[in-house]
Design a protein around this nucleic acid. Sequence first.
DNA 1: ATCCCTGCAAAGGGTTTGCAGACGC
DNA 2: GCGTCTGCAAACCCTTTGCAGGGAT
Lengths: 173, 173
Amino acid sequence: MPLFSGVNTTREEHIEEVKNIFSAYLERKQLRKTTERYTILEEIYKRDDHFEAESLFSFFKKKKFNISRATVYNTLELLVSCDLIKKHQFGKNLAQYEKSYGYKQHDHIICVDCKKVVEFCDPRIQNIKSMMADLLNFKITHHTLYMYGVCGSCQKKREIELTKKETEKLLTV
Amino acid sequence: MPLFSGVNTTREEHIEEVKNIFSAYLERKQLRKTTERYTILEEIYKRDDHFEAESLFSFFKKKKFNISRATVYNTLELLVSCDLIKKHQFGKNLAQYEKSYGYKQHDHIICVDCKKVVEFCDPRIQNIKSMMADLLNFKITHHTLYMYGVCGSCQKKREIELTKKETEKLLTV
DNA sequence: ATCCCTGCAAAGGGTTTGCAGACGC
DNA sequence: GCGTCTGCAAACCCTTTGCAGGGAT
C-alpha cells in the first residue's frame, strides 16, 4: 500500500536535534564549528520547501549576514555528507536542496509546466533497490526517482489554451 | 519478475527507421531537413553507450565535419522532443544522452567510484507510475530512476585500500 | 599561535544566445 | 527569394577555486 503526498507534515522544529547531529559530525571530522555553518543549518531547517544555493545566499545578503557564496556551497556539501539535507537535480543544471532529518524517505513528481513538486512514498522502491543490489552485486547508497508530468490544474490550463487556439483558427478561416 | 541488465542487446542498426521517424517529425513541425541533423542522428545510433554533447561535437571536429556546438545542442533537443534519444543527468552538471528507439524502457544504477552505468528494467516502476498518476491526478510523461552505489569490483578496491591504510597505521605506531 | 574557514572576486565548464552568412523549401 | 539553420564566438549561469585576512581550537 503506497503512501503519498504530505510527507513533510511534521511541523515541529528539529533544529536543536540537527544542530547536535551536525556538531557530532564536525567533531568527528575535526572540522570547525563556525557561526556561519550553524546559521545556514538553522535557516534551512526553518524552511519548508526545496531551495537553491543562490536563494540562501541572497537571503543572507538581504539580512546583512554577509555569508559568502563559497561558504554557502561549502556548508551545503557538509550537510549533504552528514545526511542532514538532500541534493536534487530536477533536470536543469541547477541543484535544489531539501532538509532530510526526521522526514520519511520519499520521491518526487514534478509538473513540467508550473514546476510544482509533490512528494510521495512507495515501499516498492525499497524492494526494487534491495533486489537490484543483490542481483547486480552493488552496495546501493541512495537513489533518486523523479516522475515528470502535468499536474491537474496545468492540464486544465492546457485544455483552455488548446480550445482558444482552435477558436482563433476557426475565426481566421 | 524483474528483468535486469543487457537491455540494449539488439545490435541491428535501426538507422533507416529512426531517420524516417525523424523526417516525419521534422515535416510535422515544419522544420528543415538539414544534412547536419541527419549526420548527428546517424552518429548517435552508431554509438552504443551514453554520450555527452561535447563528445559528439569533438568527434565531428576531428572528422572535419565542422558541425558547430550550437547545432549539436539544437539537434539533441529536437531528438529528445521526438523521443529518439533520452537525456540524463546522473548528478553533476553534465547532461548525458542515449538513443532510445527500439530499446526497452529501463533505469540506471551508477557506480559512484568508477562511474560505470548498468541498466535494468523492473515492471513495478510502471505500476508505481500509473498508480501515482491516478492518485495525484498527474499526466506523467516520463521518469528517471537512478540508483547510486558501489559496484562489485569497486567494493573490492575499497577493501584493499582500507587494509592498506590499516597496515600503514600499524607500521607507523 | 596554528591553520582551517571565510569573504571576495575571478575562473571554470557546460550550455545558450546573437549575429551574419548559408541553404532548405 | 524567404526564412530558418548553421558556424562562430561571446555571453550566460551555476559552481568552484585562489588568495589574503580572520576566527576556532
